[in-house]
C-alpha cells in the first residue's frame, strides 16, 4: 500500500467521522442527503461481498466492516432516530436515486471484467459510487447555505477520491501489470463531479467566509 492510497482511505474515514460527529453533536442531519447515504450503504454492501470469499489483509477487512457499519448506522439514524430524522430536508432531497441504481446496474451487466456474480456486483458498486454524491450535491445547491461540518464532510469525501487517483498513477508507474480501468475511469468521473464544489470551497476558505453555493 502506498502513501496516496493510505491518505485516501484516511480522508474517507475522516469524512464519515465528520458526518457522524455532525449528527451526534447537533442531533441534526440537515443538509445531508439520505439518498446519497442509502446509495453508499448499497455501494459497500455490494462491493464487499468478497469479505466472505477473499482475504487481503486485516486492514482491508476492518476498513470494509467499518464502512458497511457506519453507512448503515447513518441511514438508520436519518430514518429512525426520533430526534435526528425531524431535521432531514425531505422536501429538497428529491433526487430520483433509483435511476442511478438502475443505470449503474445496467452498465455493470454490460461492462464488467468477468461475467460472474461477484464481478458484476463489484462493477455495479464502482459505477454507483461514482454517481452516489449527486443527490448530496444537488441538495447543497438547493439549500444554498452549507454548514461547516457538512462542507467539511463533502470536502473530505472529494479529497479521498483525489488521493485515489494519485494512488492509481503511482501504481501505474510502480507495478508491472496494472489494468483496473473500470475503477480508474469511474474514479475520474466521480472526482470530476466534485470540481464545482471544490472551487467554491476554496474560495470560501480563502476569503475566510461561510461556504455558499450559487443557486
Amino acid at each position: 500500500m502506498n502513501i496516496f492510497r493510505f491518505a485516501g482511505d484516511m480522508t474517507h474515514l475522516i469524512s464519515i467521522l465528520v458526518l457522524l460527529l455532525k449528527i451526534y453533536a447537533t442531533k441534526s442531519c440537515s443538509g445531508i442527503s439520505l439518498k446519497t447515504q442509502e446509495l453508499y450503504a448499497l455501494v459497500f454492501l455490494t462491493r464487499y461481498l468478497d469479505l466472505f470469499t477473499d482475504f487481503i489483509s486485516v486492514y482491508n477487512t476492518i476498513m470494509k466492516l467499518v464502512f458497511i457499519a457506519s453507512s448503515l448506522a447513518i441511514v438508520w439514524c436519518m430514518r429512525m432516530h426520533r430526534v435526528v430524522r425531524r431535521s432531514y430536508d425531505k422536501e429538497i432531497d428529491t433526487f430520483r436515486h433509483y435511476f442511478l441504481i438502475l443505470a449503474s446496474f445496467l452498465l455493470a451487466v454490460l461492462v464488467h471484467e468477468k461475467f460472474t456474480f461477484q464481478e458484476i456486483f463489484w462493477a455495479f458498486s464502482i459505477y454507483l459510487e461514482a454517481l452516489a454524491i449527486l443527490p448530496q450535491l444537488v441538495l447543497l445547491q438547493r439549500s444554498g447555505n452549507v454548514d461547516n461540518l457538512t462542507g467539511q464532510y463533502v470536502f473530505f469525501l472529494g479529497a479521498y477520491r483525489a488521493f485515489y487517483i494519485l494512488n492509481w498513477i503511482y501504481r501505474y508507474f510502480t507495478e508491472q501489470h496494472f489494468s483496473r480501468w473500470i475503477a480508474c475511469l469511474s474514479g475520474i468521473v466521480q472526482t470530476a463531479l466534485y470540481a464545482d464544489f471544490f472551487y467554491y470551497y476554496f474560495i470560501s476558505w480563502k476569503n475566510n467566509a461561510k461556504l455558499q453555493l450559487p443557486a
Binding site: I56, N60, M63, E113, K114, E119, W122, R180, A183
Partner: peptide
C-alpha cells in the same frame, strides 16, 4: 493481466 477477484483496494 486483468484484475479479477481478489481486489486489493477499498
Amino acid at each position: 493481466e486483468p484484475s479479477f477477484y481478489p481486489k486489493d483496494e477499498l
